[in-house]
Amino acid sequence: MIVAGLDIGSATGKAVVLADGEILSSHVLQSTANPRHTADIVMTRAIEEAGLSSIDELDYVVSTGYGRLQIPFAAENLSEITCHAKGAHWMDPSVRTVVDIGGQDCKVISIGPGGRVLEFIMNDRCAAGTGRFFESMARALCCGLDGISLPENQGDDSCTISHQCTVFAESEVVTLVNEGTDVRNIVAGINRSVATRVASMVRRVGLVPEVALTGGCSKNRGLAMALEAKLNLEVKTLPNDPQIAGALGAALFASEKAGASSADPGSLREGAVG
């Protein structure tokens, strides 16, 4: 049984192809202005990488993410909250708190047995503390996202970015740059400001270890380090690419749906079947 999950987000499109509970392929690319188009390209790539010739070979497709309603070949759509919980749980069943930071929002999800969502909160309707925020800061520092994320670029805690608004924070950073502040200290300040905000969201849902980061911003090591300092615990490193957690979760639900309608339930890892 071959199924796929598709996560069409605000910044990137992600696809995962699963065969009998194992990941055959996954693909991530920049979102286009048209979610359907993004879905077509990312799905085609993932199918090619899985060694399949056509989308028709898939038994079931589930979509998630902001573009989830626009995918003609998806039999069903689920919210990205449900999917990230499922995907993160599959990657590491010890995870109880998922911090998903994507291109334009940030969610903290408390998960229970089988990767079920117990509770979640999302940030307000703006880009504060999300991928867009980091992109703006990287632009202000002329450094690219690596400049913000690499562990060796994290300076001391002498800089505080007080504004949560992306636009105001960017001008704060520009001021610091023009005062000749060490860029590594500004970078640490940027990551700490997002970590502070995320940590209070985590506490609101209830801090239950293990904590894992998913979504595109999980690639920011500096953010993970700042969050570890704030929460005073180790953020779990997931064994798979945490950016595909949502697409993987969607694919796992696709397996369940396809399994429910065929005799072969597949051989999904423990906990993946609800």
Binding site: L78, S79, I81, T82, G114, G274
Partner: peptide, 14 residues
């Protein structure tokens, strides 16, 4: 929509 959908999915999963 996303929040409400996720909320209802979580209720169903319970």
């Amino acid at each position: 929509r996303t929040r409400v959908q996720a909320f209802i999915e979580a209720i169903e999963a319970r």
